[in-house]
Amino acid sequence: MATARSSAAAAEKRRLILDAAVRVFARQGFHTCRVSDIADEAGVAYGLVYHYFRSKDEVLDTLFLERWNVMLEAIRQVDSQDILARKKLEAIAGFIIDSYRHDPDLMKVIIVEVTRAANSFGQTHLAKITEAYNLIAQVVERAQEAGEFRTDISPQFAAMAFYGAIEQVLTGWIFDSLPKAGQDFDDAKRLIVETICGGLDQ
């Protein structure tokens, strides 16, 4: 019983540090902040961060992989459903946009500090990032085989265009260059799918 309580307390501390890191990375940028900034934000001793994470890099890696793996699983679950590809792409776009809506700081960190950081974390996690494109490409490829989508556009290109459109909209929200009231999120889901699927439809 004591061990279970100890494990739960450790997990809670680790989560506290990760959540604090999201706020610090989003506010200050990964490269300009220090581990001590994360500790201060979490309200814990400096050394406690190093008890759970070997470095600031490992904190960012953990944040990215946690969220990205959730997204990959969501894409797989959507693709397993017996629905048209357009509906699958709507669900995937909806999941990613709702993720931003729920936790904009985390999505900002993932986009700015990882997926768009070509010379650092983006390169480190390229295989994981590419996995998402490949899963979306499979949705498109099967739709092409079923006659739902035209076949003169490669599935990989379509997947990258689809995800790229979503990421660009998120970037617009991150930098406040696009409106982000309640209806704007729903409009974005619809318009991204209409734009991409409009080019893929037979």
Results as ranks from 00 to 15, higher is better:
94 G>M: 11
93 A>L: 05
71 M>K: 01
130 T>K: 14
57 D>V: 00
195 T>G: 05
43 G>C: 08
35 V>H: 04
201 D>H: 08
162 F>E: 06
21 A>G: 07
95 F>A: 10
102 H>P: 02
110 I>C: 11
106 L>G: 02
24 V>F: 08
136 I>T: 14
183 Q>I: 07
28 Q>A: 10
7 S>M: 15
52 Y>D: 08
145 E>P: 00
72 L>D: 03
120 S>G: 08
27 R>C: 02
195 T>I: 02
6 S>L: 14
188 A>K: 09
86 R>C: 04
24 V>P: 06
107 M>G: 00
55 S>Q: 05
159 A>Y: 05
80 S>H: 12
154 S>C: 09
25 F>W: 06
144 Q>A: 03
146 A>Q: 15
149 F>N: 03
122 G>W: 01
183 Q>C: 06
21 A>Q: 02
91 A>F: 05
14 R>I: 05
165 A>W: 08
171 T>E: 04
104 P>Q: 05
161 A>G: 04
27 R>Y: 02
133 Y>G: 01
88 K>R: 09
186 D>W: 07
169 V>M: 11
116 R>S: 07
100 Y>L: 03
157 F>N: 07
127 A>M: 13
109 V>W: 09
166 I>H: 03
179 P>W: 08
202 Q>C: 00
134 N>D: 14
172 G>E: 13
154 S>N: 07
136 I>E: 06
104 P>K: 10
1 M>P: 03
199 G>L: 00
8 A>R: 13
63 L>A: 05
2 A>Q: 13
165 A>C: 13
44 V>S: 04
16 L>H: 11
127 A>S: 15
12 E>N: 09
68 W>C: 01
168 Q>I: 02
79 D>G: 06
36 S>K: 14
6 S>H: 13
193 V>E: 10
155 P>N: 07
113 E>T: 06
168 Q>A: 12
18 L>E: 07
90 E>V: 04
128 K>V: 12
